[in-house]
Structures are given as structure tokens and as C-alpha cells.
């Protein structure tokens, strides 16, 4: 569903991605680990078409992102590290707009209210201006927007940043349900535990190179940590 073929990206002299190849198939949850500045967000930006590859290509549902920018965006939902919304509108109004933009259809407000309640946003907050929200509350609206899109693939850039443990846990469950429904999930994270718990496949990245890839079932929590640290050294 999501595929990168020897993707390389240079920012002037800085090599942000160095011939990265990976793929995420339907029903799979892929967790990408890596230090700050490893190139995780840069990779996601390629899937969204925000950046053009220096060489190589990225495919969504078999279609090249560069040549089908609109089509490929129909198939992916995205949650950034910092969900940014219109501060003067309420959470509900933001959700109404973004989900209509995502699907081309306006959903009834009651349905939208229910979706917000499902991710744990208080009913009272949904009718408040987003300017008054905490980061986690915005993140929850972002999650709702992504879920309401019913896309074939989810692109998540540290989606749980700012979420409290309970909400993070609920989010993990949401991801599992999505993957059971055949959604391909690609997520970046700094949380090894979370990666091991929710991910099927785990990748480790450093300085733009994908150094290791393995199935989460094949390793224990303790192995995870040592593999990660080993790849961060030398």
C-alpha cells in the first residue's frame, strides 16, 4: 500500500534520506524509530507529496505520488506531530471542514460529535474554540479527522505526542482496529515500548538510512532496546 523505492532526498549538501526502501502492506502497522533528525518526517512528507524525491520514488496504492498528487492523497490520512487547526473555530467546526475536505462529503454534526467523543474529547470541549485547547485535545481532533477519512493508509508522525497514557492506549487500540480492517499504518515514534506493543513491523533509521527492519513478534522488549541502541552507536 505504501512503498518507497530507493528514495533519496538531499537538502543542498545535507542528505536527509539515503536510498531508503520500505513497504507497508494492507493490515500492517509499521513503526519507524530513529533519533531526532533521522529523516522520519522527511519520509512522511514524501508520501504526502510535500517534498519531491531527489531520486527514487514513493508509491501509494501502486501510484507514484509525484505524478498523481491528488489521487494518492485520497488514499492516505495523516496526523502530524502537532495537529494545527483553526483557532477561532470550534473543534467540531474544524472536524466538519477537514473531514469534508478529505472525503468531499459533509457528515452530519451528530455523527461528528460521536466521533470526537470516541477519541475521548469531552462533549463540552467540542463546542469550544480550538484556541483554548491543550495540545493533546488538538491531537484528538486530528485523530478524528484522520479516522473519519476512512483512508486505505494512515501516515502518523509521532501521533501520540502530547497524549496522556490512557488516550495513547486508546489510540493504539484504534490503530489495531484499523489494521484489522485492512488499513496500512505507517507511524513514527520515539516510544520503543509502544512500537513493540502496536507494531507488526519495526524499522530503525539513522542519518537518513534505514538500518534495520524486523517483525515485532521476533523480538522481546529487551531485544528491542539493545537493537535500537546498537544502531544508534558507532
Amino acid at each position: 500500500m505504501l512503498k518507497a523505492n530507493s528514495l533519496t532526498k538531499n537538502f543542498n549538501s545535507n542528505i536527509a534520506l539515503n536510498s531508503v526502501s520500505l513497504s507497508v502492506s494492507q493490515g500492517e502497522i509499521y513503526c519507524l524509530l530513529g533519533a531526532n533528525g533521522a529523516g522520519k518526517t522527511t519520509l512522511i512528507n514524501h508520501f504526502l507529496g510535500f517534498l519531491k524525491p531527489t531520486s527514487g520514488e514513493v508509491l501509494v496504492n501502486g501510484k507514484c505520488v509525484t505524478s498523481n498528487p491528488l489521487d494518492t492523497k485520497r488514499d492516505i490520512a495523516y496526523i502530524p506531530e502537532n495537529v494545527m487547526l483553526y483557532g477561532v473555530l470550534t473543534g467540531l467546526e474544524n472536524l466538519e471542514y477537514f473531514s469534508a475536505l478529505a472525503t468531499g462529503r459533509k457528515k452530519p454534526r451528530d455523527v461528528l460529535r460521536k466521533l470526537l467523543a470516541d477519541v475521548g474529547l469531552p462533549a463540552e470541549a467540542a463546542e469550544r474554540r480550538v484556541a483554548t485547547y491543550s495540545k493533546g485535545m488538538r491531537q484528538k481532533v486530528g485523530i478524528t479527522i484522520a479516522m473519519a477519512k476512512n483512508a486505505k493508509a494512515l501516515l502518523l508522525d509521532e501521533p501520540t505526542s502530547g497524549l496522556d497514557p490512557k488516550a495513547a492506549n486508546e489510540f493504539s487500540r484504534l490503530l489495531k482496529t484499523a489494521s484489522e480492517n485492512g488499513v496500512a499504518v505507517f507511524t513514527t515514534t520515539h516510544d520503543l515500548f509502544h512500537a513493540k506493543e502496536t507494531g507488526n513491523r519495526i524499522g530503525i533509521m539513522r542519518s537518513g538510512s534505514l538500518l534495520a527492519e524486523f517483525n515485532s513478534d521476533d523480538v522481546s522488549h529487551a531485544d528491542m532496546e539493545s537493537i535500537y541502541l546498537k544502531n544508534m552507536r558507532d
Partner: peptide
Amino acid sequence: EQGTLRMQLSHPVT
């Protein structure tokens, strides 16, 4: 500057 641009452009809109 607000960050709402990438939120919108992740959807099928030019």
C-alpha cells in the same frame, strides 16, 4: 505559519 496548510494539503485538494 499556523501549520494548517499541511493539514489541508494532506487531503485531495491542490
